[in-house]
Amino acid sequence: MSRDSRYLEDLLHHDIPLTRALGLRVEQWENHELRVKVPLQANINHKSSMFGGSLYCASVLAGWGWMHLRLREAGIDDGHIVIHEGQIEYPLPVVDDAIAICSAPSDEAWDRFEAIYRRRGRSRVTLHSRILAADGRDAVRFTGQFVLHK
Rank of each mutant, 00 (worst) to 15 (best):
75 G>P: 13
8 L>P: 07
89 E>G: 15
78 D>S: 08
126 T>H: 05
74 A>K: 12
16 I>L: 11
127 L>S: 05
104 A>R: 11
19 T>Q: 06
91 P>H: 08
46 H>G: 00
30 E>M: 00
85 E>N: 14
56 Y>T: 11
109 A>G: 07
23 G>H: 08
26 V>P: 08
127 L>G: 03
80 H>I: 14
110 W>L: 04
118 R>F: 05
81 I>T: 09
87 Q>L: 01
17 P>V: 11
15 D>Y: 03
110 W>G: 07
77 D>A: 14
72 R>C: 01
82 V>C: 13
49 S>V: 06
97 D>Q: 01
23 G>W: 10
118 R>A: 08
73 E>M: 11
56 Y>N: 10
99 I>N: 00
98 A>M: 04
42 A>K: 11
32 H>P: 03
53 G>Q: 05
61 L>S: 00
106 S>F: 07
55 L>P: 00
22 L>M: 15
25 R>Q: 14
104 A>N: 13
134 A>V: 12
42 A>R: 14
42 A>Q: 13
96 D>T: 15
97 D>L: 10
102 C>K: 00
39 P>Q: 15
106 S>H: 11
41 Q>H: 13
78 D>F: 06
34 L>S: 03
18 L>M: 15
55 L>I: 09
19 T>S: 02
89 E>D: 15
9 E>M: 08
85 E>G: 08
115 A>I: 01
38 V>N: 07
102 C>Y: 03
112 R>H: 12
51 F>R: 00
46 H>E: 02
93 P>Y: 03
103 S>V: 01
117 Y>D: 06
38 V>D: 04
108 E>G: 05
12 L>A: 01
68 H>G: 01
90 Y>P: 02
45 N>R: 12
70 R>V: 08
24 L>V: 04
9 E>K: 11
77 D>L: 04
123 S>L: 12
93 P>C: 03
69 L>G: 07
82 V>A: 11
